[in-house]
C-alpha cells in the first residue's frame, strides 16, 4: 500500500505540488491526468524519493526514506520518459539489468529475461543494439526492464509498486494496449501501478482509478466514470469534448473537438 500525506513541493517560491493526499491500494492501476506542467511527473519523482518534499510518503506504512536502496529497488520500479542509453547494450542485457537488486545466477537471470521477452513480444528485438532502437521500441524494452525488476514474471508477486511516466507516448496502438494490459495484469496480481497518461480513452479502458491534477493540486480522485466527464475535463484541458459510452464496455469515450478558429477539412 502507498500513501501520501500533505505532500508539497516548491521550486523557488513557486509551488509545484500543494498538499497532495492519496492512498493507493494493492491491485489498483491508477492513472495520473492533468495538463502539461500540472505536477504529474513531479509527484512521481516524489514517490520515487528522487526529490525533496514536505509531508510524508509511506510504502506499507513505512516512510519511503527509511528503506535501504536494495530493498526499495526490489519493491518499486520506475519507467522514466525521454531517457536514452549511449552504449550499445543488447535488448537482453538491458532487460537483465532489471535484475541488479537480486543476487542470482546468470542462468536464473536469463530465464527471467526470456520469459519477459516472450510475454512482451520482444523476440525480434532481443539481440538488437538498444542505441539503434526506435523511441517506441526502446520504451517497450524499458518497460520490460521494470517488470524484470519487480519479479513480474512470477504469478504470485504481490505488494510491489510500479511507476510509469508516459509509458505509451511513443507506442503504436497495438503496443499501447499490450503495455497497458500487461501493467493492468501486474496490478491485478496484488500490486500497485501508477501511470502518467495523456490519452483519455486509454485511461478509461485501463484505469481502476483516475487522479486529476491541476496546477499542483489534486482536484479529482475517482473511477474513470466519475472523473472522465466533460464538466470536469473541459475547464482543465480548455478543449471542447463530447463524451459517449463505449458500446461494448460501457465506459466513457472522449472525442475532442477542434479549437475555435481552426477549420476542419
Amino acid at each position: 500500500m502507498l500513501s501520501c500525506h500533505n505532500v508539497s513541493i516548491e521550486r523557488g517560491c513557486r509551488p509545484i505540488l500543494n498538499n497532495i493526499n492519496l492512498k493507493a491500494n494493492n491491485g489498483e492501476l491508477i492513472v495520473l491526468l492533468g495538463e502539461n506542467g500540472a505536477g504529474k511527473s513531479t509527484l512521481l519523482s516524489a514517490i520515487c524519493n528522487d526529490i525533496s518534499f514536505s509531508g510524508q510518503i509511506k510504502i506499507d506504512e513505512q516512510p519511503i526514506q527509511s528503506f535501504d536502496e536494495q530493498t526499495l529497488a526490489q519493491k518499486r520500479a520506475v519507467l522514466l520518459q525521454n531517457n536514452r542509453v549511449n552504449f550499445s547494450f543488447s535488448t537482453e542485457e538491458l532487460i537483465a539489468m532489471g535484475r541488479y537488486p537480486y543476487h542470482e545466477s546468470i542462468h536464473e537471470q536469463t530465464q527471467v529475461v526470456e520469459q519477459l521477452i516472450a510475454q512482451l513480444a520482444l523476440e525480434k528485438l532481443a539481440l538488437r543494439d538498444v542505441t539503434a532502437l526506435s523511441g517506441g521500441e526502446f520504451q517497450r524494452v524499458q518497460f520490460a526492464r521494470c517488470l524484470a525488476q519487480l519479479n513480474a514474471h512470477k504469478a504470485d508477486t504481490k505488494g510491489k509498486l510500479m511507476l510509469l511516466d508516459e509509458p505509451t507516448s511513443a507506442l503504436d496502438m497495438h503496443h499501447q494496449h499490450l503495455t497497458l494490459s500487461k501493467a493492468k495484469a501486474f496490478a491485478k496480481q496484488g500490486n500497485i501501478v501508477i501511470a502518467v497518461l495523456h490519452d483519455l480513452n486509454l485511461t478509461s479502458l485501463y484505469a481502476d482509478r483516475v487522479l486529476l491534477l491541476n496546477k499542483g493540486q489534486l482536484c479529482h480522485d475517482g473511477t474513470p466514470q466519475e472523473v472522465l466527464q466533460s464538466s470536469v475535463l473541459q475547464p482543465i484541458y480548455k478543449t471542447h469534448m463530447q463524451i459517449t459510452t463505449h458500446p461494448t464496455y460501457q465506459i466513457p469515450m472522449i472525442f475532442s473537438e477542434p479549437q475555435l478558429g481552426v477549420t476542419h477539412a
Binding site: E69, V78, V85
Partner: peptide, 12 residues
C-alpha cells in the same frame, strides 16, 4: 551507464 536516476531506482 543507464543513467543516474535509473541506477538509483535499481538500488545503486
Amino acid at each position: 551507464m543507464l543513467g543516474e536516476l535509473e541506477a538509483r531506482h535499481l538500488g545503486v
